[in-house]
Design a protein around this nucleic acid. Structure first.
Length: 592
RNA sequence: GGCGCGGUAGCUCAAUUGGUUAGAGCCCCGGACUGUCGAUCCGGAGGUUGCGGGUUCGAGUCCCGUCCGCGUCGCCA
């Protein structure tokens, strides 16, 4: 090692020893006769003094000219700082290193921004110069946190006898799910590999192989549009177990949540984690990953709406749709008409709602609203009672289809909670959502889609519904929800060929297609497949949530932009014509 | 693909109703300085206002298009 210590290491007890430090010039204070340099590495900051008597004029001049973010090596003596000149902000603030040897290992051009500057530059610049951005303590902290979480997970599963197995990145395209990233084959003209959306099929085959307990920290790829919490390539802690039911998997992950919360955040999590069914989640919160850090539960007032003469309410109820709302406590004075208009535009634009009805609970307990004249006092009173409205509350309602009321009210709920500051930033609220539907209906084609994937087992009690009413058939599926974000999801798999073929039928996957796309799995399942199930945890999201951040790019070293570009490497980029020819590829013109 | 926000000096931002030579702080360059830690002081450089078009006597400002970044809906088994 060039150095004897790191920049975060030296203390008063080291005074008198000669040390060598290496690091980056965080800042420089040049007094002419002496130069003070804050030397930074991953571990901290140490003040270096280049001045007499240790340093001669040439060394002082050289130190005075060194540019910020240059990499230097200092040999010198650890010394007490002068009386009253200590820096309480630094762990190393009691000492300084008096340079006897000063060496520039590498210079730094004037950087577009520095890691220590208080005004964070725009994200595009940070991404282009990610190597500078990653020098920032916040980024370093996120990467260290990520490393700790992954290590805690690996340790936990190793303790539970899991085997870490790597599965291929170059696989084959499967029919359902997200859009694939494709890789052309050179030796098989006009054929393509697909990058894995998850190692789903492989891990099931590992169960057939008798591995019993498998994990992998697996990179996954999905060519879909991005979000603040979504990247085109992301990392899952993928897991599969044999001879288990839902409770076994959930119980195992409960233990992981408690362990990581304790080890990483020092937080106690009560086990077992609460579980609610999908049906309950949609009814109470309008979302399958409800944010349980605050209340504002959805209330159904369709029964009252049906009794009114108000056309919007009555018509909705008569059409078999729903009038549902949320009580917004103490918000009446916090939202002006104009702000409520904005919320109305929000539910219209983002969720296709037809409008937003709202009432203010007045001091005398009556409901005031632009539409209250359309409603009888007794009905207003009923609405207030159902919503448990108290003076100062705002009551907001959507009259629409089940799906639209869910989406709109869930969106409102999250937005209002955030705006009203109802969310404790320190909270780590973990829960399970279970009993997802097996299928949802494709509105365009009217056909059934697998809500999770086509190998998901139905609840044993719902087996008959597979034939009678697929829409009511529930799956042995479970999602882990942390702070209103889907942090993991898994299922128990079908291991019985008869059930599998019924499900394929429902999904419109004929025998030939099934054979073509995942015949290898179906084949494997014929050779002694144990009952099995598993889960995949979104590592990027875990880290984001544990870090209290709201953006996944902040916990990924080299993330991509909303258009899936890497601003640093400028990927994706063009390729040579020769490369295309070798792959038997030709690009088509982009339509204007 | 839809909706919304943004793009002005290397960086963070300002610029009145469309009006003179587009400003400030930081950074950078030169100089002074032995106790700073956001060093200080003196001086200086730095602009295709993302790009293209239009309206106007005159556009950073208004209009149209486009590119890029962000948020969100669709999408994400």
């Amino acid at each position: 090692m060039l150095r004897t210590h790191t920049c975060g290491q030296l203390r008063k007890t080291d005074v008198g020893t000669e040390v060598t430090l290496c690091g980056w010039v965080e800042s420089k204070r040049d007094h002419g006769g002496a130069v003070f340099i804050d030397l930074r590495d991953r571990y901290g900051l140490t003040q270096v003094v280049v001045g007499p008597p240790e340093a001669d004029a040439a060394m002082i001049d050289q130190a005075g000219r060194v540019s910020t973010e240059s990499v230097i090596l200092i040999r010198g003596n650890v010394a007490d700082r002068l009386e009253g000149k200590t820096n309480k902000k630094l762990p190393t603030g009691d000492i300084e290193v008096r340079s006897v040897h000063f060496e520039i290992l590498n210079t730094c051009e004037t950087p577009p921004f520095t890691p220590s500057q208080s005004d964070l530059p725009g994200e595009d610049l940070r991404l282009k110069y990610r190597f500078l951005d990653l020098r920032r303590p916040e980024m370093l902290r996120a990467m260290v946190l990520r490393s700790s979480i992954v290590k805690a997970m690996r340790d936990y599963f190793a303790e539970h006898d899991f085997i870490d197995v790597e599965t291929p990145i170059l696989g084959r395209s499967t029919p359902e799910g997200a859009r694939d990233y494709l890789v052309p084959s050179r030796v098989h003209p006009s054929k393509f590999y697909a990058l894995p959306q998850s190692p789903q099929l492989y891990k099931q085959i590992l169960m057939v192989a008798g591995f019993d307990r498998y994990i992998q920290v697996a990179r996954c790829f999905r060519d879909e549009d991005l979000r603040a919490d979504r990247q085109p390539e992301f990392t899952q802690l993928d897991l599969e177990m044999s001879f288990v039911d839902s409770d076994d998997v959930i119980g195992l992950i409960d233990g992981l949540v408690a362990k990581t919360a304790k080890e990483i955040l020092g937080k106690e999590v009560q086990l077992p984690l609460p579980r609610i069914t999908y049906e309950e989640a949609m009814r109470r919160f309008g979302h399958d990953a409800p944010d349980l850090r605050f209340d504002m539960e959805i209330v159904d007032i369709t029964s009252v709406a049906a009794k009114t003469e108000f056309r919007v309410f009555r018509g909705t109820a008569d059409a078999g749709n729903f009038v549902r709302g949320i009580p917004v406590k103490n918000a009446a004075t916090k939202y002006s008409r104009r702000q409520i208009d904005e919320l109305t535009e929000y539910v219209k634009n983002d969720f296709g709602a037809k409008g937003l009805a709202w009432f203010r609970v007045e001091d005398d307990g009556t409901l005031w609203s632009p539409i209250s004249k359309n409603l009888e006092p007794e009905h207003l009173e009923e609405i207030k009672t159902l919503m448990a409205g108290e003076p100062g509350d705002l009551l907001m309602f959507l009259a629409d289809t089940w799906e639209t009321t869910c989406k709109g009210l869930s969106g409102l709920r999250r937005r209002l909670a955030s705006e009203l500051g109802l969310i404790d930033p320190e909270a780590l609220n973990c829960s399970w959502v279970t009993e997802f539907p097996m299928f949802d209906k494709d509105e365009e084609t009217g056909s059934w889609n697998a809500m999770h994937h086509p190998f998901t087992a139905p609840l044993a009690s719902d087996l008959e519904l597979l034939k009678d009413d697929p829409s009511k058939c529930r799956a042995q599926a479970y999602d882990l929800v942390i702070n209103g974000s889907e942090a993991g999801g898994g299922t128990i798999r079908i291991h019985d060929p008869a059930t599998q073929s019924v499900v394929f039928d429902l999904l419109g996957i004929d025998a030939e297609t099934a054979e073509d796309r995942f015949g290898f799995l179906l084949n494997a399942l014929k050779y002694g497949a144990p009952p099995h199930g598993g889960i995949a945890l979104g590592i990027d999201r875990w880290v984001m949530l544990f870090a209290g951040l709201d953006n996944i790019r902040e916990v990924i070293a080299f993330p991509k932009t909303q258009k899936a570009a890497d601003l640093m490497t400028e990927a994706p980029g063009g390729v040579d014509k020769a490369q295309l020819e070798e792959l038997f590829l030709r690009t088509a013109k982009v339509p204007k």
